[in-house]
Design a protein around this nucleic acid. Sequence first.
DNA 1: GGAGAATACCTCGGGTTCGATGTATGTAGG
DNA 2: CCTACATACATCGAACCCGAGGTATTCTCC
Lengths: 194, 194
Amino acid sequence: MLELAILGFLYDAPLHGYELRKRITALTGHVKPVAESTLYPAIKRLEKAGLLARATQPGSVAAPRHVLTLTEEGGSELRRRLADPVQRDITDENRWFTVLAFLRHLADPAAQAAVLRRRLAFLEEPASFFYEGDRPLRAEELHDPFRQGILTIARATSRAELTWLRSTIDSLEGNVRDASPDRPSSAAGPSTLR
Amino acid sequence: MLELAILGFLYDAPLHGYELRKRITALTGHVKPVAESTLYPAIKRLEKAGLLARATQPGSVAAPRHVLTLTEEGGSELRRRLADPVQRDITDENRWFTVLAFLRHLADPAAQAAVLRRRLAFLEEPASFFYEGDRPLRAEELHDPFRQGILTIARATSRAELTWLRSTIDSLEGNVRDASPDRPSSAAGPSTLR
DNA sequence: GGAGAATACCTCGGGTTCGATGTATGTAGG
DNA sequence: CCTACATACATCGAACCCGAGGTATTCTCC
């Protein structure tokens, strides 16, 4: 997830580590802070793997900077990770948001839609947090107000995301855009399920 | 987070590892699966720390079981972690949900409310995912539909959670409880809003 | 009676992450 | 001039996590 963010930010422009850190902190820091001791080793890993290159510059403000640039392989690795994320990137909201933040870097709308479809499929399969045997429990059946809260919140999130996903997939695939709800039914149906 | 879940489930009843795993999988598994190779070492850690004890039983179905029981220290450690969670447990939704799932184990409503207040404070401070300089950007200002999605979804979640938090804190502190809507005020609905 | 699944536990190795700490340089404020 | 802070990078050890693999028992179905 961290590596994806690094590749994603560098895809736009070369940056040095410190600036990278500030951007990542803005992106996900309020939820899950990124420690320097995590970032710098990650940069080294990616460098060693040939995904990015560094050039030392005299620091404009203070200490010298290591400006990081994405290599060819770095760019294609980013696209690979975006086009074909591991399942955890789909299911874990933190990771999923990171994928979303850089998904525009995939050139092909169909490929973008395919990724959104995976998330859609995940959200559509019924899942609860609490069960009685095999039967998922609804919020009303719980006595515990805190567990009710979990379901309430999860449900609200899920609803909002499903709405957004469906309309975004629609406009990516059908190119129908707004104002012409011509296709009925399962809509989501045919076309590329991949 | 994993350790919290283990302590939380064992607080209710002694369980063996395999059953524990099934419960944790039901709780958080669809978002972030728990590997056995993570669970068993965690159990050992907790055992070594004296937080839980094991007793071997002949397996009722198959191989022998190690039934795990929370010790005295285990119980107080659980209460300590619930009453005074580290900041990451407050900000990271995955972790926060785990705290919520077991918060009822804190006997004192005021202590429960205090934990909810921390989450409330976190959600109330303005934070975005994207900035232009220091100014947080709103969904409408973004060109990228995927980043718009992030903000849209986060906003919906946040709204739902804020509503729930405020009404729950209210009923925990005001002790209005159910069935007696005597107090007017912020309402938000007595108990379960949904 | 043999295959396959479910129950039940465990280890190993590699990789990731975190908190603490260290080292410099330049800028702002008193 | 001194302190404090921001910039900029880095290392270390401990903890943590995960995939792959291993062991053994029982139940079900063919």
